[in-house]
Amino acid sequence: MSNHLHLVLRIDPGETLRWSEDEVAARWVRLFPPREDSDAAIEAKCLRLQANPERIETLRERLGSLSWLMRCLVEPIARRANREDGCKGRFWEGRYKCQALCDERAILAAMTYVDLNPIRAGMADRLETSTYTSAAERVTQVREDPASATSPLKPIAGRLRPTVDITTADYLHILDWTGRQLAPGKRGRISPDAPAVLANIDRDGTRWTTRVAAFNSGWHRAAGSAQDLIALAERMGQQWLAGIRLALKLGVKHRERTGRPAGGMARG
């Protein structure tokens, strides 16, 4: 977007604990290479890091940190944009915020919200023209390889298992239909020709579009069923969590297959 971005991601801080000191050093140097772009300089920097166990443990923690992921992503973009504009100062809207996505339905709703953001903002009028979205990348992929349309929906980046139990074509159909319902001037209008697969995700079309739109205002620290949000509030030592009332209104009475947060959406 013009001053912020959205990511739907899965993060496992414990993954870094299984990495050797060599791998921690190598990954860090790929993120922050030496000024001299040569194999010798890269190897020398890795060796210096490996010789400092305390530094390695600090880097191990950072490589599993969402805060550092966002920092490594947004700082270079801000610096480049300011250089291009010949200006200084803050480029992004504000510090990043994140929400836990507690089940597959919440993950899919967040993905839908993110992919439709440029269209709702009037920056694009079709999925394939919404630059820098996974939707545009998926449309291109299907055009180049039609057989991929029937493949399980997978993350755009990373070697992860399928995000939700639908195909790429199913997801694109859901995106197209949801975008028409949430288009400016059409809020609340639900057509009867919803994709059949949507019935497996949310039997009520109005409830589905409400769930997606709630990422703009409604969901806060987490999105999911009321039971998941209540459990999360208890783990945080709170009696209530913003969004529980919305979850109750949506009538989600049963937990999904996973009982723990399955992913998250970060906004920077």
Rank of each mutant, 00 (worst) to 15 (best):
R95V: 12
V74C: 13
G89E: 01
R71H: 13
G89C: 04
A51H: 01
R90T: 07
W92D: 05
L66F: 07
W92A: 03
L127N: 06
I77F: 09
L101F: 00
N52V: 01
D85L: 14
R83A: 12
N52D: 15
W92E: 01
P53S: 00
A110I: 04
C102V: 08
N117C: 14
R55G: 09
C98N: 13
I119R: 13
I119L: 15
L127E: 04
L73G: 02
I119F: 10
I77M: 10
A100N: 10
W92P: 06
I56D: 00
N82C: 05
G94K: 12
R79T: 08
A109C: 11
P76W: 00
L49Q: 02
A110F: 02
C98P: 10
L63M: 03
E93L: 13
E57L: 05
F91A: 11
M111V: 08
N82H: 02
Y113Q: 12
C72I: 06
A121L: 13
E84G: 03
L66T: 05
S65E: 05
M123Q: 15
P118K: 07
E61F: 09
K97E: 15
L108G: 01
L69I: 04
R80Q: 07
P53H: 00
G122C: 07
Y113M: 11
R105F: 04
Y96C: 06
R83T: 07
A109Q: 00
A106F: 03
R71D: 13
L49W: 01
C72Y: 08
L69F: 10
E75S: 10
P118V: 04
Y113R: 13
R126C: 09
N52C: 09
S67C: 07
A124G: 09
P118W: 06
E57V: 04
D125S: 15
Q99G: 06
V114W: 04
D103E: 11
I77Y: 07
K88C: 14
Y113E: 10
G86H: 02
G64I: 02
E104S: 14
N52A: 13
R79N: 06
L116H: 03
N52M: 09
R55T: 10
Y96H: 14
E84H: 05
N52G: 03
L108D: 00
C72P: 01
A121S: 11
G89L: 05
E75L: 12
N117F: 11
P76H: 02
A110M: 04
P118I: 03
L108K: 00
A100E: 12
M123W: 14
R55F: 09
